[in-house]
Amino acid sequence: MRDGATLRFGGREFHSRLIVGTGKYPDYHIMQKALEASGAEIVTVAVRRVNLDRTQESLLDYIDLKRYTLLPNTAGCYTAEEAITYARLAREVGMSEIVKLEVIGDQRTLFPDNEELLKATKILVKDGFIVLPYTNDDPVMAKKLEEAGAAAVMPLGAPIGSGLGIRNPHNIMIILQTVQVPVIVDAGVGTASDAAIAMELGCDGVLMNTGIAGAKDPVMMAEAMRKAVEAGRQAYLAGRIPKKPYATASTTMEGMIE
């Protein structure tokens, strides 16, 4: 059972099990409020060209770096080589070894290219990175990523931004039994129950972006997600009743009138 009180990887410890992205918000003000409402301690960012027009606002103006741990991603990378370059650039910007490794295999689904992902993981681990790979729900792949030195595995629940929730809870459960590193569901969460389901399965955390940023009220949804992750975790630790095909009465027959 994964019953640690905190989320731990790469020598770090976090109390919040909800990781939130910074993309696709209506504006930076709403993003800032949503991050606060989510209770997240880790937020993801992308590595992109700076805006040379310095009169424009930038993301980091709205993120308190004393409060949040930044988790740079390698979004948009389709080869191991590209992802490795972006990881190294991210390390240079953030002066931190932690990276959410994405190597995308298909533009429509944004599913990972697992072959390239494994290659990149091995190289980056050797280069001293704390690698959190975004992968699919294949336990064989999860095991390989762990053996390659990944600090956690991050199986998708459903395609990025799809809001379809945890499409294959059975595989996620098998992954939880297959690896020792933290399992963080990343991608596909659409509403609070999706996050709760992931945590009820025993996952160590949930990562989401569109589910919050794209909601009608991102700040309210962020708070809902915070509660959902906490509730799901608590339900998991509390030990649910088993599922049975037939009824077992809650009230004894004894003491009834004849």
Binding site: T22, K24, M31, A46, V47, V50, E92, V93, I160, N209
Partner: peptide, 25 residues
């Protein structure tokens, strides 16, 4: 690397990329 910013001199035709953290999931 950051500690070399003062010493690296650019040459004509150099392709320079300056990146930072931007919004992303």
């Amino acid at each position: 690397k950051r500690d070399r910013y003062e010493e690296v001199v650019l040459q004509p035709g150099d392709t320079i990329e300056i990146l930072s953290f931007m919004a992303g999931g």
